[in-house]
């Protein structure tokens, strides 16, 4: 290698330090959390979405390619797998609730899971979306950590799925209480469960503001919907 390459080499080795990207991500998320709190935790001010926007603007401004950033932020990516495994803990804590309302939960999943997938896939297909977009949309109601895995298995784009999942969560958090009023449903178990099934963790955060019962059922809906969708979707897509 010629001496001329030295400067660029130094730059690359600096950019390879994972601390910079990891640190920037943590700071961006902290800032996003603050902004969200200042706005009264409004669902539209979702910290994940705000942090994604902040980092994207930062990358645009500094001309750092996405791949470089992703390599640097790998420690954060790595933690996603263990975090999904740990979702077993809140589910285990809710096991008595699961048993006590087993039928309600079973029907909620039996309706919400297929309607969630088919409505999204159906609308996108009717409106002429590409197959890659349709596949990325299929797991949109599932909590992001699981949705990414499903998307990869069925041939969607992981990054597109993540953004669609967040958009779905925000939509569900905003619409959930409105739809409940429109449908004249005031059972907090039903409202919570549905919001968890339709809009995962972001919906669950909103359901927790309604009541503790709604929050618990929402967390349940999210967890069970995630696991069941991960089992069913790849199997169904294998048939085609």
């Amino acid at each position: 290698m010629s001496t001329l390459d030295l400067t660029s080499l130094t730059w690359i080795s600096l950019a390879d330090q994972p601390i910079l990207e990891t640190g920037a991500t943590v700071f961006a998320f902290l800032a996003a959390t603050r902004i969200s709190r200042l706005g009264g935790n409004h669902p539209l001010l979702n910290p994940t979405l705000l942090a994604i926007i902040l980092i994207s603007l930062g990358l645009e401004a500094t001309h750092i390619p996405y791949k470089t950033y992703l390599r640097g932020a790998d420690p954060i990516n790595f933690m996603l797998g263990p975090a999904v495994v740990l979702l077993a803990v809140p589910l285990f804590r809710q096991r008595t609730v699961i048993r006590a309302s087993a039928r309600l939960i079973a029907v909620g999943l039996g309706v919400g899971l297929p309607v969630g997938v088919l409505s999204a896939v159906g609308i996108a297909w009717t409106m002429g979306a590409s197959s890659q977009t349709i596949l990325s949309l299929a797991p949109k109601s599932v909590t992001a950590g699981i949705a990414v895995g499903i998307s990869e298995q069925i041939g969607g784009l992981q990054t597109l799925t993540i953004v669609l999942v967040i958009m779905t969560g925000i939509t569900g958090a905003v619409l959930g209480p409105l739809v409940a009023r429109l449908a004249r449903v005031d059972d907090p178990r039903v409202v919570g469960l549905t919001m968890g099934i339709a809009s995962h963790g972001i919906g669950t955060a909103r359901a927790l503001q309604i009541s503790e019962v709604a929050g618990a059922f929402s967390g349940l809906g999210m967890g069970l919907n995630g696991v069941l969708t991960a089992i069913l979707l790849p199997l169904i897509f294998r048939l085609f």
Partner: peptide
């Protein structure tokens, strides 16, 4: 679980930024 799931939302940021691509 409580500690890690508290900032679960942060863990999607690197992958989510990929949407700019």
């Amino acid at each position: 679980a409580d500690r890690l799931l508290q900032f679960l939302g942060m863990l999607f940021v690197p992958a989510g930024v990929g949407v700019i691509a």
